[in-house]
Design a protein around this nucleic acid. Structure first.
Lengths: 208, 208
DNA sequence: GGGGATCTCGTACGCTGTATCGCATGCCGT
DNA sequence: ACGGCATGCGATACAGCGTACGAGATCCCC
């Protein structure tokens, strides 16, 4: 598991093959099958292993919003450390021990709220959905240049006239200025969206 | 492209191999390489093709929240029709013509808002992130039973004692009742979360 | 010391994406 | 009408994948 995670961290999930992991361990491919039944099991184990990294050790803040933000930040940081996590997101339901501990801790963050468990569950689901979406998109944007390999400048060069044509076509009057100007923006995007969502939840809780 | 989409709809993205698509077209594998350079190109084309399905034909509602909801619903419906879309989400940045038209239309939904383009961009990003996260999670949950194939009952049988042990262990006091009771819940989860987010955005816009 | 269980892994099968190259076809200029 | 060339199809092949099967080696226990 540790070997597989090391490979994935360094070279991406695509580099994690049974043979490769075995080699890294000084063994042969089929040896791994003494410990796992299929490759998917290894992926599940990897996911749960890094899920431990989002667990908050110190006591959670009293304020539920601060508690949620603390956890959410750790989720994001974890994925930045292990970008391959997003590749698993769309294909494996991960409910290992550490994943469950994380859910339990997220529920604990809402201890102060005077609503029933189901309501808390729904609140968490919404927050998780936003987090997941943001993290996937962020990861993708970070990975995009790297994925293109050496062709980075080349792709940009190819994209240039394409963009220029789009702008010139006049079919995208609202999008065009954003492309031309670039959408740099500060890096507080994650927390801004999260706070919008928390604001909405809070105002709903307080009877709107 | 149409052949590939048909295969993916019916059997999942995993069934879309070059040979398979070629066979479906009465051709041989290498023939496809006359039209695409690599398989990734085909995937990009497929993604942009179905992106057309989220474009709203009729005029958008005046109210920006209604307009956003209209578009968001179409996104979700599209992915329900083509669940394999989520498999692409974590590996391809898709900016084909239809994808761009979709972005332009989303910006148009915010025409009524009195903020600059960058602010609109940020609002859209937050909404998109939530949508993406929800849709990925929903898709995953729908796919999970199917993915396990015949072992559906078998897996449930395996999971049963595991869950029982978790509940009994007392390590998950908040999670346990949710597991025991099941988390059915109504199916308006998507729009509830979306509305929370829109509430937060709106109150921010109105000067809080 | 014998025997049974356990762990390792050599081999092989069917699958993947795609590089290379031979062939057949059709169009074009003379 | 005919020769030559461009174009597109596809056969073959290669390196890689996950993993089923079963042989061999090792270790432990009676």
């Amino acid at each position: 598991m540790a070997a597989a995670i090391a490979i994935a961290d360094a070279e991406g999930l695509g580099a994690v093959s049974i043979r490769r992991v075995a080699t890294e361990l000084g063994a042969r491919a089929m040896t791994l099958y003494s410990y796992i039944e299929r490759k998917e099991d290894l992926l599940d184990l990897m996911a749960d292993e890094i899920a431990a990294e989002v667990l908050v050790d110190e006591p959670l803040p009293e304020d539920w919003r601060e508690a949620i933000l603390t956890i959410a930040r750790r989720e994001r940081e974890m994925v930045l450390r292990h970008p391959w996590r997003v590749d698993l997101v769309s294909q494996r339901v991960s409910v290992g021990p550490n994943g469950l501990r994380h859910v339990e801790q997220s529920l604990a963050a809402l201890d102060g709220l005077a609503v029933d468990q189901l309501a808390k569950w729904r609140i968490l689901a919404a927050i998780d959905d936003y987090s997941l979406g943001f993290i996937v998109r962020e990861s993708l944007e970070r990975a995009a240049p790297r994925r293109m390999g050496v062709s980075d400048a080349e792709r940009t060069a190819l994209a240039e006239p394409y963009m220029r044509e789009l702008v010139a076509s006049g079919a995208f009057p609202r999008l065009a200025p954003l492309i031309e100007g670039g959408v740099a923006g500060a890096d507080d995007t994650y927390e801004r969206g999260l706070n919008w969502l928390l604001d909405g939840i809070e105002s709903d809780l307080s009877g709107r």
